[in-house]
């Protein structure tokens, strides 16, 4: 490490297992992306940044289908998380989504469209204002953002727009998990003649009315998005509500 760590980073390192602490870094993008500097300036400007191995971004290193690349972000090792920003350095639309875990864990599974091989990263802001950054390279043959949505060929997609299906698991190894699917073409606006048309905002509340998570989604999230959340085992019936950039709203209740 070229430069001494900030006090905050030193304090963090003292609390971590030795191997993780050794991997903490304030400089030097571990993914060696030519666009990291630009990413940092655009999204994290001015705030302290740490490359932190406790931010897990799971995705296949070779994506078979650039339209549906599964990504799991797990920042549950960080303690209280305020905001998570997911972006892909080399995507034509870089920003994928943001989520604000309130009463839910700092965990989200989803799928993304990638146009070419790129790092997929999560920047996780903790209450002290530090951005903890983790990520992984995904290789793909690309075409994910400029290919038309499958629904473009289907006749009934308008009837099914914003149809929500979902389930909660209360037993087994995935107890506390919520999975939700929303029918939406998630058009990027990069296909000629098809304007950007995508979900923008989804809120999750538990049965007691507490907000579990606020989620902002952008164009690169895959068509008919599926989200995996850790809502917790005592959430009761979860209400999901949201809208797209054309103002089409939805509201659905997912009972355990």
């Amino acid at each position: 490490m070229k430069f001494p760590m900030t006090i905050a980073a030193l304090a963090l390192a003292a609390l971590m297992p030795a191997a993780d602490a050794a991997a903490l870094s304030e400089t030097g993008d571990p993914l060696a992306s030519a666009r990291w500097g630009e990413m940092e300036k655009s999204f994290l400007a001015g705030a302290p940044v740490l490359f932190d191995p406790r931010v897990k971004v799971i995705a296949p290193s070779m994506a078979e289908d650039p339209l549906q690349v599964p990504v799991t972000v797990d920042a549950t090792q960080l303690g209280k998380v305020v905001e998570v920003l997911v972006f892909a350095d080399f995507n034509p639309i870089v920003q994928v989504l943001r989520f604000y875990p309130e009463h839910a864990s700092a965990y989200l599974g989803f799928r993304v469209k990638l146009q070419q091989s790129t790092p997929v990263r999560a920047a996780v802001r903790t209450a002290d204002g530090i951005w903890h950054v983790g990520g992984t390279w995904v290789n793909t043959v690309g075409g994910g953002c400029t290919a038309p949505a499958g629904s473009a060929a289907a006749k009934d997609w308008q009837q099914r727009l914003n149809a929500v299906s979902g389930r909660q698991w209360s037993t087994g190894p995935n107890a506390g998990r919520l999975r939700l699917r929303i029918e939406h073409p998630m058009d990027t606006g990069l296909v000629a003649g098809t304007p950007a048309f995508h979900l923008e905002e989804i809120d999750f509340h538990d049965a007691a009315g507490q907000r579990l998570m606020r989620l902002q989604t952008f164009e690169p999230v895959s068509e008919n998005p599926v989200f995996t959340l850790q809502a917790g085992e005592n959430a009761g019936a979860v209400e999901a509500s949201g809208r797209d950039n054309n103002g089409n709203a939805f509201r659905a209740r997912i009972a355990p």
Binding site: P60, P70, G109, G172, P173, N174, T228
Partner: peptide, 10 residues
């Protein structure tokens, strides 16, 4: 049915 996400299924 077990609630697995695509990354886990892979």
């Amino acid at each position: 049915q077990a609630g697995q996400d695509m990354n886990e299924v892979l």
